[in-house]
Nucleic acid binder design. Structure first.
Lengths: 201, 201
DNA sequence: TAGCAAATTAACCGGCTCGTACAAAGTCGT
DNA sequence: ACGACTTTGTACGAGCCGGTTAATTTGCTA
């Protein structure tokens, strides 16, 4: 029941934003009534907080499944970048929730005790890859895991978040047919190129 | 008067979103009254449309001032990428308006007859650079101007749009001190590296 | 200065939507 | 069987907020 409310609320908040979403609308799409929303969550803002946490939890859980330790560092980095690109592409609602949260200056993210530790692990895979890459003499030392994560996130996130405005202005070539594959390939190439020492490219 | 309303409205919409912004609040921060907003703009949605157009207009106007034709292609590409990064960084309200528009699936962008032609020119500089780069035998042929624009936009846009959530989760290292300079340098390096033929890097 | 349209002001309205009150009944562990 | 927790339904209050009514002022033209 709580789960049902959460998933409906996530879709509604993702579709309409915090102030745009309607409690009555959420209730109508639920198997239960509005009364239960208040019973479980108290008010709209706390419902949104729980949705935010749930969104991060789901997405991070999906990321944990990726196994990289058995691959050489360059292959691992490639796979991680590709995975992130596809993963974000498969979770547009999560992207939208994060967009909305950024619109709100991260006010509700700050309030949550849960999300920071949840995400701390998101960069550990990259740290392990970088360590192995440096130890093998392949990776530059002046490019940090955090920076790599930033670049990968930027291109993977933007690819979903700004699709509508971008395609409206510049056409849909980048999103139809093999446009997405090309973008992904280029993104991976850029990231790996940045991580590698110039002489090892 | 109209101008005054527009600039106040842009700040309000950028800060709170479409449904989050309050007409009364906009009116209060204006030199005039709420009635004048309706006198000039009709209703909230049309006010938002005008704000959207104005935001694109201002930002594109700023971009036009960049002179690149006298530079060799690689230098021109570097400068364009750097400029875009800084330009977006200097116009957070524009970024937020575009974020909000994406939240709304570009519904208001579609309605505007003005914005598409306004943005068509945004990619011309890049097309000229690419043409010169290819003619000089420096640039790859399988990387299009649109793709380069996409990558540059992604990293420059995300750098502003997702700053709050990202810095809350991963700390502010990338945004304080010379963190931004490093990111910009890396972004330029990646983009140039993608555009150039492997043997010319 | 008469006349008229544009610009401006202040008070107001009505509906939407969050949240609650109230009343009741089912579920589950112990 | 008992009590705490969970679920259902309906109805409604209250305030916020987008939008309007109507009257007044300004400014331009002749």
């Amino acid at each position: 029941m709580r789960k049902n409310i959460l998933s409906v609320a996530m879709a509604e908040f993702a579709a309409n934003g915090l102030s745009g979403a309607r409690i009555d609308e959420i209730a109508a799409k639920t198997n239960t009534s509005k009364r239960m929303i208040y019973y479980y969550f108290g008010d709209k803002e706390r419902l949104y907080e729980r949705v935010l946490e749930e969104a991060y939890r789901e997405v991070r859980a999906g990321e944990q499944e990726l196994e990289l330790d058995h691959l050489p560092p360059v292959e691992a980095l490639k796979l991680l970048a590709e995975f992130t690109f596809d993963h974000h592409s498969r979770h547009p609602d999560f992207i939208r929730i994060v967009m909305i949260e950024n619109i709100h200056h991260g006010a509700y993210l700050e309030r949550s005790e849960l999300i920071r530790p949840l995400n701390a692990g998101a960069i550990q895979k990259l740290e392990a890859i970088c360590r192995r890459g440096r130890e093998a003499g392949l990776f530059r030392k002046d490019v940090t895991p955090l920076q790599l994560h930033w670049h990968i996130s930027a291109m993977s996130f933007f690819n979903v978040s700004n699709r509508t405005t971008f395609s409206h202005i510049f056409g849909t070539d980048l999103f139809m047919g093999d446009g997405q594959e090309a973008l992904k390939r280029q993104m991976v190439e850029m990231v790996v190129g940045l991580a590698l020492k110039p002489e090892r490219r």
